[in-house]
Design a protein around this nucleic acid. Sequence first.
RNA 1: GGAGGGGUGGCCGAGCGGUCAAUGGCAGCAGACUGUAAAUCUGCCGGGUUUCACCCUACGUUGGUUCAAAUCCAACCCCCUCCA
Length: 404
Amino acid sequence: MTHSSEFLQRLDARGFIHQITDAAALDAAAHKGPITAYVGFDCTAPSLHIGNLVSIMMLRHLQQAGHKPIVLMGGGTTKVGDPSGKDEARQLLDDGQIAANMASIRRIFERFLRFGDGPSDAIMVNNDEWLSQLRYIPFLRDVGRHFSVNRMLSFDSVKLRLDREQPLSFLEFNYMIFQAYDYLELSRRHGCTLQMGGSDQWGNIVNGTDLIRRIDGREAFGLTTPLITRADGAKMGKTARGAVWLHEDQLPHFDYWQFWRNTHDADVGKFLALFTDLPLDEIARLAALDGAGINHAKEVLATEATALCRGRAAAEAAAATARATFADGGTGAALPQFAVAAPVTIIEALIGLGFAASKNEARKLVAQGGARIDGNAVTSDAAPVAPGQKVSAGKKRHGLVVAA
RNA sequence: GGAGGGGUGGCCGAGCGGUCAAUGGCAGCAGACUGUAAAUCUGCCGGGUUUCACCCUACGUUGGUUCAAAUCCAACCCCCUCCA
């Protein structure tokens, strides 16, 4: 389908679109003038992870196309807990934790969006503003009457729990009502006419557009992104070590860069389109490379994606360190460091750098030939390491022992 | 309420008195091959230490039987299936 609005053209060309409630009407609205759209984010953790990046990039494209993004923080809904995809009720957070998480998350958004008072400047709002003000009886009469329990019970998030006879509290059951109500509030307060989110949010988003139509008689749209998977079928961004965090406190710049650098060949083009600002013809050229060329494309992906989230300087530094470490066998400033006062053994160095959790594990690395000092395989557990030397565990983990 | 079946290492899933730190698969780590890829092959894969060995902790929970229990018994907790 071809779109006339720059916004939908961009999203479509870059692979962001899964479903739209009324694509033609949304396209017409976005073509006619600036629209306001929002994405809701949870604040159960102090940082967002790669799984949220698609939505963040979508808001970025929205803004670049001249529209106004709203970042909705789920301060109120976090007190309720989204039952989607969870087998058990989430642990509930208190106000202090939620506020701290929100402040931390805001710093991430400031990298991707321009905030301010201008017509296309992003704003961040907290749904606790209205949710905690609600009065029960009026809310039930005005909003609750538009929700059919029969239909709510058919939602996957609810059905899953009921089918397994797992407890679903009334508190959680209300989550979808609140999410729909958020949309209504944003529609009234900010003239918001579009909610975006992941494909798992489709049902909740449609609830919102329906609610707005029923109560206020206005049109509202919904747009979802496809679930981003890797070429090998695994979920994007899930590693054995946990989520890939966007916040540098939880994941060093170098590791973030490395995450992108290790993208599968087949995913390079897709990820460049989704997670960088590079023009599409440049992406097409990079994705078509193979052999040594695709490795260059991965470096571009890593540097561009890191630059967006962590800043250009951090991205370049990570790239330079990676080049020096992997291509030239040397070292770089962005490698993890372990400060020592006196020479240590290889075992202590591996643990100190976090490459081994125990002496046992470190010994295994040595026994298997995976431990190296300045690139030379170590054969003895007692091999000494002096400040200034590089210690490696396997092919990808490198660190520097420095003088304390 | 009645009748059965089951709860095992990060996950799935064997074992059903000693040879069990527990087959196998997945995930993970390391090595080989490469391109810091994929696929493939090999090794490792509860923790600790003075590591061809030893010591801890583990098979839902708590007790018991036994020289010896993941394996048998009892009670309890939880899950599943069928009947009411």
